[in-house]
Amino acid sequence: MPETTPVTSAFLPQLPALSAQAERLIELGVHEVAGLPAAEFRAFAEAGEAAVGREGRAGAEGTLLAVHPDRAPASALAPLLRRDDKPGFVVTDMPDVDLFAPAAVELPDAPLYLVTGLDRGDHMSNWSPDEALPALTKEDRTPLLLTEGIHWVLQQPAALERNHCFMTIGSRLRKADGALDARTPAIWISNGTGRDGRERRNAPKVGWCWWNNRHTWLGFASTTGRRGRDDLTVPGQS
């Protein structure tokens, strides 16, 4: 593995309460994108808060409310990102962004779920995805999906900062022959160069990097686990 100087992401601001996260997504219209009533977001967030509270984990790990990518794809979420009053965008050479699906990542069979124990993976900056994935597996962590990374930045904009951005290698594109595409998705901040355009300087950017390449400014975002509605008691549901 390449030598790195660990930069912990533990000093990021704490995620908002799940109820506040639900309201944020509703305000952005994500419930409409997902085809779900706002009340379902609120009920799930309430159940999630109760569950992590009972287990003594509220605030300890940081819990993120996520929408299943089949319900809210990256192409719909990326423009909702904001930095310096500039909307997020997907790079022009990634028109197939929504085809990047979970790879070796099990998602709850539910439209809404929780992502726990988030880490930006700063200590893996200047590693390649090929090097980072087995290290995460050894730590009993799984990489974030692209949509989960976008949800994280929507709720906690400070998670994305210059020189400390991150890859989301839980999402991969499988080609027609069954092999995985060498592109791996990431979220970073545009410099406004090339096809991005000067008007997009400092805007949040969804792009990709090669599987075997290293980047000093990209860590590897990961999670300790995911929990769906079957793991929670949602008010009004059995």
Rank of each mutant, 00 (worst) to 15 (best):
R227E: 11
D122Q: 11
L36E: 01
H68N: 07
S19E: 12
L114V: 05
A34R: 00
E40C: 09
L25Q: 04
F166V: 00
S238N: 11
E40M: 13
R198K: 13
R195C: 09
G121A: 05
N212G: 11
E40H: 12
L180K: 05
H123A: 13
D119S: 13
A58E: 15
F220D: 00
Q237N: 08
L118Q: 06
L77K: 01
T184K: 10
T5C: 11
P13C: 05
A10N: 10
L154Q: 04
E49S: 03
Y113Q: 01
K175V: 11
L136R: 02
E23H: 10
H31S: 14
A104C: 08
A78H: 02
E131N: 04
M1A: 12
A47Y: 07
R141N: 08
M124C: 03
T193N: 14
L160V: 03
Q237V: 12
R227H: 15
T92C: 14
V153R: 01
A135M: 13
A135C: 11
E148H: 07
E199L: 15
G236F: 11
W127N: 00
E40F: 14
D93Y: 13
T147E: 01
D231P: 01
F89M: 07
A60H: 11
R141L: 08
G192M: 03
P235Q: 04
D231T: 15
F89S: 04
G35Q: 06
T4I: 02
L64C: 04
L64I: 02
P6Q: 08
L146W: 07
P185A: 00
G53I: 03
I169H: 06
E139S: 12
P134L: 01
L154V: 13
A66T: 06
V7H: 14
S171M: 04
R57G: 07
R198F: 13
A58N: 09
A104D: 15
I169V: 14
G62P: 01
P73M: 02
V153E: 00
P16H: 12
F11S: 05
A186P: 03
W211N: 06
Q14M: 10
C209T: 15
P129S: 05
Y113R: 01
P157V: 09
W152Q: 14
L28C: 04
Q155W: 07
R120Q: 12
W208S: 07
V30N: 00
A60E: 11
A10W: 11
A78E: 03
T233L: 12
M124A: 04
A159M: 06
T63C: 09
V105N: 07
E32Y: 00
A132W: 10
P16Y: 12
D85C: 05
A66Y: 00
P102E: 03
E23W: 08
R183K: 05
R54T: 12
S171T: 06
R226N: 05
H151D: 08
V7L: 13
T184V: 15
P129T: 07
T116H: 15
